[in-house]
């Protein structure tokens, strides 16, 4: 047992980005649940809409968009909250939500970890565009049905409600999702199906926090970074030395590549240079 603990600690020590990411994810879950003595609860509500530090409203812009499309008038507090959230992700990069905030990420990462442990090779190939299709469907259905279409099955808030009120009704769906990622498709949910990720990708298309190749001559082209990346295609131009930075909006800024790279060729940087703003570095095609 002590041995296992020591192994986990040494693993996390050599994977600082993973450690930071998990810490933040768990802290966010706990902020909604734990009452700190003398202080109270830091966050009220859930990831649809919440009140942080008793003053700061945060609202999921995707949920608010569905609500507006379903015919609801927009209220001030919700709009302010959505603007804060959308502004943050638009500046830094949308899918930061996926790997630093979303609690489902822990579930699907666990499924992926098990998938590798059991060396499951079978893979149902799906188009990564499916999530955009689902996103459009959710928005159109909100208009047609007058209800928040995606919120009927949204596993993110479902998982959070299960944790907060220790209910178990949604566990069937959550375990189906886990098994799907474990046995059916590699990174099936987060990488192919989730419309929330597709929405944040769309918001944060020009996000400036980027994985950059700081020392290209340090890269040994071992492609280890691509092997650990949840969205491998985003790294390809950088490893092929056709681009200096990951500009693809699919990048979740999870930092798995940084943890893996032993040469220090990559780093996470706020990329404010005007030279490549809004266009990315031109990729030379042969």
């Amino acid at each position: 047992m002590a041995n296992l603990f020591r192994r986990i600690v040494s693993y996390l020590k050599s994977h600082p980005w993973l450690l930071m990411r998990r810490t933040l994810q768990i802290l966010i879950v706990l902020a909604f649940v734990i009452d700190i003595p003398e202080v109270g609860r830091i966050a009220h509500g859930n990831l649809s809409s919440s009140l942080w530090f008793w003053n700061v409203p945060l609202t999921d812009p995707f949920v608010l968009l569905q609500s507006w499309l379903a015919g609801a008038p927009l209220a001030k507090v919700a709009l302010i909250g959505a603007a804060i959230v959308a502004g943050f992700y638009a500046f830094f990069g949308g899918r930061i939500y996926c790997s630093w905030v979303c609690p489902i990420n822990m579930l699907t990462d666990a499924a992926y970890w098990l998938r590798q442990k059991f060396k499951i090779k079978g893979n149902l190939t799906m188009s990564q565009d499916l999530r955009s299709v689902l996103l459009v469907m959710a928005l159109v259905l909100s208009v047609i049905t007058g209800t928040l279409a995606w919120e009927i099955i949204n596993p993110i808030t479902l998982l959070q409600r299960e944790i907060m009120w220790t209910s178990a009704v949604g566990l069937t769906f959550l375990s189906a999702l886990f098994l799907f990622d474990f046995l059916v498709t590699r990174r099936g949910w987060c990488g192919h199906l989730c419309p929330v990720g597709a929405f944040y990708r769309w918001i944060g298309h020009y996000g400036r926090l980027r994985v950059m190749a700081v020392k290209t001559n340090a890269c040994s082209s071992c492609t280890d970074c691509i092997k650990v990346c949840p969205e491998p295609h985003v790294l390809a131009p950088v490893v092929a030395q056709k681009a200096m930075a990951v500009t693809d909006s699919d990048c979740t800024r999870c930092g798995a590549c940084l943890d893996k790279c032993g040469n220090g060729a990559l780093s996470m940087k706020l990329d404010l240079s005007r030279g490549n703003s809004f266009r990315g570095i031109p990729i030379v095609k042969d």
Partner: peptide, 9 residues
């Protein structure tokens, strides 16, 4: 149904 965003506040 359309206005409530299911936040639980």
């Amino acid at each position: 149904d359309s206005t409530c965003i299911r936040c639980g506040l």
